[in-house]
Amino acid sequence: MGVTDAPQWLTSAFVRSCKGAGATAEPAQIEAVAQDLIERWSQPQRHFHNLRHLTDVLMRVDELAEETHEPELVRLAAWYHGTVFDSAERASYAGRGGEDERASAALARAQLTELGVPHDAVERVAELVTALVRHTANPEDFDCAVLCDADLAMLAAEPQRYRAYLEDVRAEYAHLPIESFVRARIKILRKLSERPRLFLSPLGAAWEEPARQNTAAELHRLEKELRRIESAEDAGSDGTTPSTPAGSPA
């Protein structure tokens, strides 16, 4: 999904959220910012963290909106949460992936301030974006909980869509050697498995069981894949011909 086939409702949705947050700029100026954000989300190196992901997160926020205090600010945070992205190897996948939440928050501050959004609202959007660095929210911060849940909702997708998600993530980090990617992904999945809850909002709790099933199955598969890779390396170091590992953990 690119700029040319972006859903028509996206731009008007951004304008509506900005106006709801108190923006004083003319609609044409707000639309220009929306177009800039759509172009950022449509960059060719994005295979998962792309425009489709943005629309998915926005729709999930809509599903959980009744639990928010300031839904338009949560929607704006969804728009900005992955606007700055770099999947290059120097951006450690196991650490934070390619999303740069702090740089994205800085962009939100600059653009929303220019659109006349009040300072407190701008700072709240930036705070919500930055909270996604660790995907942990204070359970009493309902807006932050909803944003985190909406961003993680793909973990609860039906199995076929979850497999497609894994393929997209692997494509996004295709420059990483298979072993490096598998180890990084295992690290992420183990961290998720240690959490007492993946989803903090009451409505998001319905996604807990399918997400646990998906991530547990993926972790089991990747741990098996890593053992196969390590066995092949051991065989190679002994001077024997190593077996060929699978090309993708997805």
Rank of each mutant, 00 (worst) to 15 (best):
M1Q: 09
P7N: 03
L10E: 03
T11A: 05
S12K: 07
S17N: 12
G22V: 14
A23C: 04
T24F: 12
A25C: 04
E26T: 08
P27M: 01
I30M: 00
L37H: 00
R40K: 08
P44H: 01
H53R: 05
M59T: 15
V61A: 11
V61L: 13
L76F: 09
A78Q: 06
D86Y: 02
Y93R: 01
D100F: 10
E101S: 13
R102W: 13
A106Q: 10
A106G: 06
Q111K: 10
L112R: 01
E114H: 13
E114A: 15
L115W: 02
G116I: 05
P118L: 12
H119W: 13
D120A: 15
L128I: 04
T130N: 07
L132T: 08
R134F: 15
C144I: 00
L152Q: 01
A153E: 09
Y165D: 00
Y173F: 09
A174S: 10
E179V: 10
R185K: 09
S193W: 08
A205R: 13
T215G: 07
T215Y: 14
E218N: 06
E218T: 12
R221W: 09
E223T: 09
E223M: 05
A235N: 12
D238F: 14
T240W: 12
T241G: 07
P242T: 00
P242R: 03
P242F: 00
T244I: 10
G247C: 07
